[in-house]
Design a protein around this nucleic acid. Structure first.
Lengths: 332, 332
DNA sequence: TTGAAAGCGGTACCAG
DNA sequence: CTGGTACCGCTTTCAA
């Protein structure tokens, strides 16, 4: 077994309650004593026993993340960001990839202070949990828990709005999923509605289906689209990966951005890779999401009331990948 | 706070130590009493407090997984499999995405029974841990902990071996990484050596570099390769994703498998998607890896001695994607 | 077969 | 400022 505060007490020749105080940096211990104790604790490689501590304090300084769909890369950046954010708030993050209900039970047994659930489907019965829960990305409908989500519909609408206002009349959206995917459908829905609002044409090449959201799918879709004589003057892409493929296809076809075609990508990941050209994006920055999530978590832990449903507003970020459209004629 | 055994004791009108026994299914409790207690516990939605339990029993029935590189999809299937396997052994899996040392400290505080670390780089100083640790995929060199790993070098050698024995003289390997990547280099090394052993030619198109291991990279590489008049009669691919792209490129070029070209893919994921044709693969099945890992974990927990370095032998699985080579002439 | 009581490693309160 | 002690929820002897 590991080192306990009693071992430290013996070594430091003080009572173990003094050790406890010193280690918690209590002002009730004289500075030299404190230093001595801390030093000894360090030498002995002391690690406080969470079990014992949370047993009495009822707090574990731990947040449980329920993430059954690790295979979905989409959330890994988010989880990474959240982990980091919570670390700064001196919380430890623990992840379970079990199903919602199992995971929640586990975290309850572990007495985590709060739970974030990334779940695709709404759980039928609101799992009974002593620990407060916030969900992310779940249909806002009638989740039994407070929910944080990105307004994907609005994101795409914002993109269409920008393009329409800058003269584009023919816009395509690449990213409708062949398989059912609630999150993607929301984007498509936003596109459809915005096109309608602006009274633009909606034809067979306006919404392009893809098998997956990977780079190749974007490439394939765009290649196909460029074969048409009357290809759109602007494209909105459903994900960063798709966009990479789209750029490749455009480049390969010898067309140029933004002269021949403007592009806006849905994306909440900060542009890590530098693509050849900085992509215009629309979406909620990852940091905004993790900040909001942490905020809710902390509020929940402090038993404050929180909004039942938070819908994050996307930001539009226009770069050189977009240009006003003047009917295809050169401007000079 | 949640329900405790005392609440149950009160409701069942027995002492709380009896409740404890009943819930642990001890033979020291009469069957009817036991049933009654279990029923009440269930009604009350009792969840045993891990903190209290592990405080006294010194066991938490939990395995910690250190997985700092979640962004790397490679391991997600493995973690999923391991989680499932351990669940069957009635262990709970908890994941930390913090750096090795932090994560190990966290798990020590949590008194997990053992730790699995997926780490790319060998940690400089063997973090001091009370809890036994096993690492996966780390250079077998001189890890301070027992290690389980796949023999990637041997995998590729096995593939070359098969192809060479069935008449192939010109074989290419697609999957050398542009960025440094230890795991990939091992495969390339295996390829190089096997080619040498069989006295085959090693030219500029024998080993194809890729930017990443995604589908598109395979597509691009294969497309390039097929432009050569004297393209190889067989290709070995470094990953399942690469293979998907490779198949697409071959198909697009109007060539056929295995008539024009044979292909073997490095892969340990069970063929989930059915590609058009079943791919020949070489690698260690995921289940073998997770079984071995669990086995070591359990042994470690029981304080048995384990091998310091376990190197799993890859399996070759040949399907219709490979065919003996007779110099390019038709056989009939 | 059941109950009482000790104690796991800490925290926090109270007395000195 | 330091030490003593009750107790968190549970497991595990030991007695009844």
């Amino acid at each position: 077994m590991g080192v306990t505060i009693k071992d430290i007490a013996k070594a430091a020749e003080v009572s173990y309650s003094t050790v406890s105080k010193a280690l918690r940096d209590s002002p009730l211990v004289k500075e030299p004593t404190k230093q001595k104790i801390i030093k000894i604790a360090h030498q002995l490689g002391y690690q406080p026993n969470v079990a014992a501590r949370s047993l009495v304090s009822k707090k574990s300084q731990t947040i449980g993340v329920v993430w059954p769909t690790i295979e979905r890369v989409t959330h890994s950046a988010l989880v990474t960001g959240l982990n980091k954010q919570l670390e700064e708030l001196s919380y430890t993050t623990l992840i379970s990839i079990n199903e919602m209900e199992d995971a929640i039970n586990t975290f309850n047994r572990y007495q985590v202070d709060a739970i974030v659930a990334f779940n695709e489907k709404n759980s039928r019965e609101p799992a009974k949990s002593t620990v407060p829960i916030v969900t992310y990305g779940i249909a806002h409908e009638d989740s039994p828990f407070p929910t944080v989500d990105v307004n994907r519909k609005q994101a795409i609408q914002t993109a269409v709005d920008h393009l329409a206002r800058t003269g584009h009349r023919s816009i395509s959206y690449i990213g409708d999923m062949v398989q059912e995917d609630h999150l993607q459908e929301e984007k498509v829905e936003g596109f459809r509605q915005a096109i309608k609002d602006y009274d633009l044409e909606l034809n067979s090449t306006s919404i392009i289906k893809v098998n997956d959201l990977a780079s190749y799918d974007g490439y394939e879709a765009m290649k196909e689209l460029l074969k048409k004589t009357d290809h759109p003057s602007a494209v909105i892409s459903g994900s960063h990966d798709l966009s990479k493929g789209i750029l490749r296809a455009i480049q390969e076809a010898g067309r140029s951005i933004p002269e021949d075609i403007s592009i806006i990508s849905y994306d909440n990941i900060p542009a890590t890779e530098d693509l050849e050209l900085p992509l215009s994006t629309v979406g909620v920055p990852l940091s905004t999401i993790t900040e909001k999530l942490s905020e809710i978590l902390i509020a929940l832990i402090n038993e404050e009331t929180v909004e039942q449903s938070i819908y994050l507003k996307p930001e539009l970020n226009i770069t050189q990948s977009c240009k006003a459209w003047n009917g295809g004629e050169t401007n000079e």
